[in-house]
Every structure is written in structure tokens, then in C-alpha cells.
């Protein structure tokens, strides 16, 4: 493959996968670290020069590279902080263990386009509460105060919203 072709292939690979990879990494790492991890994966592919452009496997391969890097970083964190936040880290690692392939992800770029419409289709009360949490990052206690509800009710409605969205996305 010619150098220019190779660079173009990398660019295509990048454009088609960067968003979903960064979305994944940000669930586990702070914004900057997540960006670095994804960039590193592409740089390594470039350096090794073994890029095979095969849509079926390459997406999964990229995600696994990102996942492994996230895993190593969290594992390293875990060793540094013996007790503090250790349980949160354990839950993160458990989560990373779950992602053994791309199929485990339920929101791809295509689904991403419809997610806001799906939120708009939630039942009235559920939608109102979920939007405050989702778009404005409000905590349950704040929403409860705002809408004169109990925190427990808000939590239940948020869970319900997630449950409905999950069913739509996974067809369960």
C-alpha cells in the first residue's frame, strides 16, 4: 500500500470509529486521558503498519485496544490507591470485563442519532425527570426539590426511563 493510501485509510478508520471509541473511553477515564488512550491506539496501528481494513473485525479490534488500555490504567490506579475509591474501581473493572466484543455495546453511531428522539418518546413524567438528569446533569435530590417529589420517586422514575430506553435499544 502506498504511503498516501495508507494515510487515507487511517483517516477513514479514524473518522468512522473515533466517536464511538471516545464515548467508550470516557465512561472509564477522565476526558483528557480518554482522548490520549484513543489517540495512542491509532498511533500504534500506524507505527506497526499492519492495518487491515476489514469493517467487520476492525471496529471490534479497535474497541478492544481501547478497552485494554483503559483496563491497564484502572488496574494501575487500583494498585496506587489501596483503599480509597477502590470499590468504584472494582466496579469499573468488572464493567470492562464485560466488554469482550463490540456487540456488547448497545449504542453505535447509528443509534446515537436516534437517542434524543427516543428520549422524547418516554412517558410524560418519566421524560421530564430523565431530561433534567440527562441533559442538565442534575442529581436526584435536586430534581426532587425542583418538582416537589421525594428523592426515592425521582430515582424510581430515572430507573424506569433507563429501563424503557434499554428495552428499545436491545429489543428486549
Amino acid at each position: 500500500m502506498k504511503e498516501d493510501d495508507y494515510l487515507n485509510a487511517l483517516k477513514r478508520l479514524y473518522k468512522e470509529n473515533f466517536a464511538s471509541l471516545i464515548r467508550f473511553a470516557r465512561r472509564f477515564l477522565p476526558v483528557e486521558a480518554a482522548k490520549d488512550v484513543v489517540q495512542d491506539v491509532f498511533v500504534e496501528i500506524w507505527e506497526r503498519g499492519d492495518m487491515r481494513y476489514d469493517d467487520a473485525t476492525v471496529r471490534s479490534y479497535l474497541l478492544m485496544c481501547v478497552r485494554n488500555k483503559c483496563y491497564n490504567i484502572l488496574k494501575h490506579e487500583q494498585m496506587k490507591e489501596q483503599t480509597l475509591h477502590n470499590i468504584q474501581l472494582k466496579n469499573r473493572l468488572l464493567e470492562l470485563d464485560y466488554y469482550v466484543s463490540i456487540e456488547k455495546q448497545i449504542i453505535d453511531d447509528e443509534q446515537m442519532k436516534h437517542i434524543y428522539r427516543r428520549i422524547d418518546l418516554l412517558p410524560d413524567r418519566c421524560r421530564e425527570i430523565f431530561k433534567l438528569a440527562y441533559y442538565e446533569d442534575k442529581k436526584s435530590a435536586e430534581i426532587a426539590q425542583l418538582l416537589h417529589l421525594s428523592t426515592r420517586t425521582v430515582e424510581h422514575q430515572l430507573y424506569l426511563a433507563l429501563k424503557i430506553l434499554r428495552e428499545k435499544l436491545t429489543n428486549k
Partner: peptide, 18 residues
């Protein structure tokens, strides 16, 4: 349980699209 949890976290975090 892990699947449910992971999927819900994915939905919640879809807000952070680039």
C-alpha cells in the same frame, strides 16, 4: 446483572457525544 448495569451506563453516558 453486569449486562443491565453496563447498558444503563452506556445510555446515561450517550450524552457525552463528541
Amino acid at each position: 446483572h453486569v449486562a443491565l448495569f453496563c447498558e444503563m451506563r452506556e445510555i446515561m453516558h450517550s450524552r457525552n457525544n463528541i
